[in-house]
């Protein structure tokens, strides 16, 4: 059987007599994962961290809309979509926080619920974290935020609470796992800007397969303005 053939070839290459020692070294590393050095950009705190996140989004061409409180989100989305001449219709998942928003404040915005359909123009998801080091959004799959919403529609709008902006990928994943009851979701999607390709003549073109446009609605909720 190939499994045993491969494993014994690997074991043979590594000295079979040390296999038990290797096994315990591997379990030990998994039980307590190493803390590798992180670059400074992955260690920022406070305002510097928030500022780096914003700079990275700008450099990536991501639209950023700040609101002071969650209540303002529906209206902000409606304003954003109409300013860009986009249809006032979006689809979202069953995410508690998204569900609790006062959608009636944006009465001309049609909100569909469920995984994305082929002809949806706008998808709305909530990111569980943002990693300041590269302006990366961390989303988790599940009925709350179906993964297809991030990829099928032409425009992806992501809601993120400012407190969820962390320094690094490591911190972002820790937040995702904490929000998910410690369970690794089927997919963790780290999104850094919209879909792009350089495959035709080396020129960067947006919207290769996923969204052409990415917008982040940042809820400052409780955060002090500086």
């Amino acid at each position: 059987m190939s499994r045993n053939r491969i494993l014994s070839a690997v074991r043979g290459a590594l000295d079979p007599s040390h296999a038990p020692a290797r096994r315990s070294a591997a379990s030990a590393r998994i039980a307590s994962a190493p803390k590798h050095p992180r670059p400074n950009i992955a260690k920022l705190e406070g305002d510097e961290r928030i500022a780096r996140f914003a700079e990275c989004l700008a450099a990536l061409g991501v639209d950023r809309i700040e609101v002071q409180a969650a209540d303002e989100v529906p209206a902000a989305i409606a304003t954003y979509l109409s300013a860009r001449g986009l249809p006032l219709r979006l689809r979202r998942g069953e995410d508690n926080i998204l569900a609790s928003l006062p959608w009636h404040h944006a009465s001309d915005l049609v909100v569909d619920i469920g995984p994305a359909q082929a002809d949806d123009a706008v998808g709305l998801s909530r990111a569980l974290a943002g990693a300041a080091e590269t302006g990366t959004l961390a989303l988790a799959s599940g009925p709350g935020n179906p993964v297809t919403l991030s990829f099928l529609p032409d425009t992806h709008v992501v809601v993120l609470c400012e407190q969820a902006i962390v320094a690094s990928y490591e911190d972002a994943i820790a937040r995702v796992l904490a929000e998910n009851g410690g369970v690794v979701p089927r997919t963790i999607n780290l999104v850094t800007g919209a879909s792009r390709t350089g495959d035709i003549g080396g020129k960067i073109v947006m919207g290769a397969h996923g969204p052409r446009r990415l917008a982040v609605i940042l809820i400052r909720d409780g955060a002090q303005r500086t």
């Binding site: 990275c56 590269t134 990366t136 089927r186 997919t187 963790i188 780290l190 999104v191 850094t192 879909s195």
Partner: peptide, 13 residues
């Protein structure tokens, strides 16, 4: 690039 647009950790079906 500093990071690729999509980095996905996929775990099972």
């Amino acid at each position: 690039q500093a990071f690729t647009a999509y980095t996905t950790i996929v775990t099972g079906p």
